[in-house]
Each structure stands twice: as C-alpha cells, then as structure tokens.
Amino acid sequence: MIRIHLVAPDGAETTLEAKPGESLMQAAVAANVRRIEADCGGLLTCATCHVYVREPFAAQLPPPQDDELGMLEFTAAPRQANSRLSCQIELAPALDGLTVDLPATQH
C-alpha cells in the first residue's frame, strides 16, 4: 500500500493508503476527502481534482501531458509550478509518503 498525505488549507492533514496503479484522485474520492471534487470522474474534462504536489515528489512525477496542462488553465485556485490534476497521478511504490496540499476551492 502507498501512504498519501493530503493537507487542507487550514493545515489539517488526512492520511490514507492506496493501491499501486490507482490514481491519487480515485484514492481520495474513495476515502471521501473533502476538496477533491472530481466532477468528471477522472476523464480529464474538468480541473476539480487540482492539488499542489510537494517536493521531493513533484520532481519525481512524469511531466504533465498537453491535455493536463490545458485543463490546469481552468483551476479555480491559483495555479502554481507544482499544480497537478490528481486524476493524472498514478500511484506507485516510489510515491509512498506523497504529500499534496489541497486548494481552498475547486469551483
């Protein structure tokens, strides 16, 4: 299992475990994590699963593809250099301990 830490804007942290191959969005939705709306269910047609990936994990992820970059233009919260859509983050053992900050809003 892969341990993931999701940090809310107020500093409250949720830790969950997920299976390799699952997306970060799927794991968060299954755990009822607030602030991961995932309106499109992971089809990459919205930006409501936006997260800020902390280092060292941001540097370990493959770069976003053009379709993800396009959707990141529509995030409700300000886009940052470490902004990613959680539906595009495939969990793997190397991401054990992944920490992401959740934006204040997805809409």
Rank of each mutant, 00 (worst) to 15 (best):
A8D: 15
P9G: 02
G11D: 02
L16A: 06
K19R: 13
P20Q: 04
S23P: 03
M25K: 01
M25C: 09
Q26T: 11
A28I: 12
N32W: 10
N32G: 14
N32S: 13
V33A: 06
R34Q: 15
I36S: 07
E37F: 09
E37Y: 08
G41R: 08
L43P: 00
T45D: 15
C46Q: 07
C49H: 08
C49G: 02
V51H: 02
F57C: 05
A58G: 01
A59Y: 07
Q60T: 03
Q60I: 06
Q65R: 10
D66T: 10
D67Q: 13
E68C: 13
E68A: 13
L69P: 03
G70T: 06
G70Y: 15
L72C: 08
L72R: 12
E73P: 09
F74G: 10
T75S: 11
T75D: 06
A77K: 02
A77L: 07
A77G: 11
R79V: 13
R79G: 09
Q80M: 11
A81C: 01
S83M: 06
L85I: 14
C87M: 06
Q88P: 14
Q88A: 15
A92F: 00
P93M: 04
P93Q: 11
A94C: 11
A94D: 15
L95G: 03
D96H: 10
D96N: 15
D96K: 11
G97N: 01
G97A: 13
L98F: 06
V100N: 00
T105G: 08
Q106I: 03
H107V: 06
